[in-house]
Amino acid sequence: MTGSRYFINTLRFTLLVLVQVLVFNRLNFFGFINPMIYILFLYWYPIKENRAVFIGIGFLLGFVIDIFSDTLALHAAATVSIAYLRPTIMRFVFGINYEFQSFKLSNTTRAQQITFLALLIVAHHVIFFTLEIFSLPNLLLILKKVIFTGMGTLILCLLFSSLFSVQKE
């Protein structure tokens, strides 16, 4: 059981990185919208895992994306941040429920799942674009990029997550 879980996560990691860098990084919808669907990895990652490992994997994921897209360590910084913030966001969205043993993402309501995903994406994009542009006078540009890319990411992530949803037991 544990073996297959590692296998699934490794496979997910590799496929999401490849899809991200080979397809979505060159989408340039409306000239600048490149959805970052690799955030789904953090959305899907098991909840009851060691937090330190999770943060480490988040960093690694961001860093691999960085190497492919020549963005220094911007993705790494943003991804490690949302990996760290994930428990806080989950507690906010799912309430105290999520600390129970029996908690499963697939058992929650659709609205809760979307809120959870949206909060991850917003946090990630705010950190990413703030670091990328890194100037206060361009606040409007940062906001524009966060909002539009965020919407693109959210829509595609929802499509992907319904395509590859974890089967309900």
């Binding site: 330190a52 943060i55 480490g56 960093f59 961001g62 860093f63 220094l72 360590a73 911007l74 790494a76 910084a77 490690v80 941040s81 990996a83 760290y84 670091l131």
Partner: peptide, 13 residues
């Protein structure tokens, strides 16, 4: 751990 990783990535940037 989070702060260390964040600082590493900021240092690269």
């Amino acid at each position: 751990l989070y702060l260390i990783l964040l600082i590493i990535s900021l240092a690269f940037t």
